[in-house]
Structures are given as structure tokens and as C-alpha cells.
Design a binder for these strands. Structure first.
Lengths: 214, 214
DNA sequence: AGCATCGCTATTGTATACAAAGCGCAGCGG
DNA sequence: CCGCTGCGCTTTGTATACAATAGCGATGCT
């Protein structure tokens, strides 16, 4: 995507994810154009994309609003993510290169280090976690899967999840990553699938427990 | 969507589906604007949508081409579609309303009639088949799933598949739909899941057998 | 006072003009 | 003859102006 469109997309997405744009609030193209410092044209493109990713919803007559995710929406997102990411792990198991495996190991070592610190470094944990999962998705070598997962892995959700993890739970994430790596080394697609499913679903329940109302 | 955009979308999609625009052929916004009788702006919106639905692909630098899928792409599409649509069937099994069930029955009756004709009416088969699957997806009540499946159910593929079905295979489709309906009546999510998986995967293999090279 | 209707305004949709970026061809040099 | 470079033309990206439409409020009628 081009510069202005991309910028508008990132900016608006940021507004929504940060909570600056509250769920249900109306969005007007012109106001967003001002905020992003571009014209309405790229804003419109960004909004179409955000609409297709369900960050914003279109009302009866074309007016846009910030989407409002309820508990069911989140549950469905986690379910779909578990399904698709497990499939990705399964494909990755038989396709991953030694180089990518090394990356995974390095990545998880950093992650483990972030967890092991006296006060766990949640920011690093998140960054390495994201990287770890991205490597697997890339190794799955399925562009469609990549696209779909991109709209399911919401960092704010992940962050809210991780923020409520205690050290033991963070450590368990690192351990599960380690098990995934072993499954990859063994090229065992089913094992990788199972571990990934468990990994995501545990995150889901940690999230639900932390955020019982929403 | 608004009038001109919608028109451009339908027109371009038609060009691709009819085969007038051959796979791999370049598409320029201006030429399409001329064809559709609108300006480039709505054409661009239509193209974005077609791109997200994978009817067209964007090259290294933003040039658009009619999509051309290879065997791997198709295999992955069918696999993802089987996964997601089986999930949809599973959800639908416990959520579907009696009204929707009636729709399914009516729909499948029409489909069976189209198959039973002396020379099977493939166009009607396709229309009813699409409607049948759409009802199930709607009953699954998961907006994200709906969005994702929209970009996986490619009519050109479905059509090429159905075109190579003989009458027995078309009839088997109708039969499988019937079994799905029974699973829905029983509210048996696992059964619905299994039947749908088989239904899609059979279509995949029928397609592969019919189109061994691509 | 309540409701309906009219008109203004806010917002989205479309067209067009202009800017930027790539691709290809031509001309030049090795 | 091949390849490289630079220029022009095609194509896409962005901004802006204008058109259409929906929402909202005010005003007047009952």
C-alpha cells in the first residue's frame, strides 16, 4: 500500500486499538483526514480496509462507527485464531528451514530472558512473542493464511492478556514455545498442531479470566 | 455500497468470471473506468474489494492483474475453506432456526430438481448451491467467519468444479446437503462438521481430477 | 403541545486535475 | 551485438472541487 493510505490505516487503527476512539463512536472521513494529515481519498481506502477487518462498522446509510467487540466476538476471534494458527503450525512443521528454526530458538531465548528477569519485561515478551508467531506463519508459506491471521491477532488483546499473566504463566508460554520447536524439529505436524491449539486456547482463557465482564 | 462502485464491482467481476479477462492479464484503472462508464474513483474501490477477494492480484508495484491460481493455491484454498466452512456448519448446528432450516430444505429441493432434469441445469445448481452454503454461514452468526469465507469461495472455481461433475456427482452433492440438514435437525455439531468437511474435500478432489494440470 | 414538513447542513460519493513513480524504449558506449 | 543509461509515457496515488443524500432542526400548522 502506498504511503498516505498506509499511514492513514495505521493511524486510525491505532486510534481504535488504543481506545482513543471509543467503541460505537462515529467516524467522519474529514475529521480522520485532518488527524492523519492526508486528504479524504487515502482515508477512504484505509476505512474500507478497516471495515473489511471489522475494526469499523457501516451503519444503515454508510456512516462509519468504531466497532464494539463483545465477549462473543472475542471468543470467536480466539477460536478462529487457534484454528488457523494451529493449521499454520502444522504446515510449518513439514516446511520449516533450519535457519527459521534457529530464529525461533533465538527468539524464544530472548522471550525466556524477558520472563526470567526480576520484574518480567512484558514489552519484550510481547515483541518476541509476536516475532515467534510471525516466523511460524511465514514458514507455513500460505499467503491466504497470513492475510487472515493478520486480522485476528490483535496486539491490544494480546497485551491485555499478557498483562494479566503472572510470571508462572509467562514462563509456561515460553515452555510451550519450546515444545513447539521440538515438534518442528521432529517435523511432526500433528504434534505442532496440538501444541499450538493449546497455546492459543490457554491464552484465551487467561484473557477471559482477566476480563470477565467484556 | 454505492451505485457507481457497485456497478464497477459487478462489471469487473463479470469480466473475470466470464473469462473475457483472462488470468494473468493486466488491468488498468482507466480502461476499466471506460468500460464501466464511471470515473477511476469507484473503479479503485471495486478493485480493492476484488483484490481482497483475490479475484485480482497486485504485482510488485501496484499494477493489477487478473488472478491466476496454481495447484498449490487451489489446494490451500480448499483446505482453508473446508476448515472454516466445517466450523461454520458446526456453529450452525446449534444455532440454526426452524425458518433457516426450511430455507435450506427448499433450497436443496430446487438444487435436486436442477440435477434431476434431463440435461442437468448447472447454472441453477450453482445458484442454489451458493444459497445453501450462504444460509449455513449466516446461521453460524460469526461476522469474521463470513468475511473470511467470502474470499475463499471463488465462484470461478466452484463453477469449474461443477462443470466437470457428472450427474452422479451432482446428485451426491444434493445428498450430502440432505445429510447436513439432518445433522442440523439433530443439532449435532460434530456430525455437521464432518459432513461439511467431506463435502468440500470431495469437491476439491473432483476439481483436481478434472483439472489435473492447473 | 405535538407532529409533520421543509430546508439547511453535515457527510459521503464521484469526477477530475495534478503529482509521483515505474516500465519500456531508444540511443549511446563498450 | 549486448548492455547500460536516461528520457518519455503510461499508470497509479493524492488532493480538491462538486454532486447527491441523509440527518437534524426549526418553523408552522393542527
Amino acid at each position: 500500500m502506498s504511503k498516505a493510505s498506509e499511514r492513514a490505516y495505521a493511524e486510525i487503527r491505532g486510534l481504535i486499538l488504543s481506545g482513543d476512539a471509543v467503541p460505537g463512536a462515529p467516524l467522519t472521513e474529514e475529521a480522520l483526514a485532518d488527524i492523519c494529515g492526508v486528504s479524504r481519498t487515502p482515508v477512504r481506502e484505509a476505512l474500507r480496509r478497516l471495515e473489511s477487518e471489522l475494526y469499523v462498522v457501516r451503519s444503515d446509510s454508510q456512516r462509519l462507527f468504531v466497532a464494539d467487540w463483545n465477549a462473543q466476538d472475542l471468543a470467536e476471534m480466539f477460536t478462529l485464531r487457534a484454528m488457523l494458527e494451529a493449521h499454520a503450525a502444522s504446515r510449518a512443521a513439514t516446511r520449516i528451514t533450519p535457519q527459521a528454526l534457529d530464529c525461533l530458538r533465538a527468539c524464544n531465548a530472548s522471550l525466556a530472558a524477558a520472563v526470567a528477569a526480576e520484574t518480567p519485561d512484558v514489552a519484550s515478551f510481547l515483541a518476541e512473542n509476536r516475532r515467534f508467531h510471525d516466523i511460524i506463519i511465514a514458514a507455513a508459506a500460505s499467503p491466504r493464511l497470513t492475510t487472515m491471521l493478520a486480522s485476528l491477532v490483535e496486539q491490544p488483546v494480546v497485551r491485555r492478556t499478557a498483562a494479566r499473566y503472572d510470571r508462572a504463566e509467562l514462563a509456561r508460554s515460553a515452555h510451550e514455545h519450546g515444545e513447539l520447536i521440538i515438534a518442528f524439529v521432529a517435523h511432526d505436524a500433528e504434534w505442532a498442531h496440538a501444541v499450538m491449539t493449546g497455546h492459543i486456547r490457554r491464552a484465551f482463557h487467561a484473557f477471559s479470566a482477566a476480563d470477565p465482564v467484556k
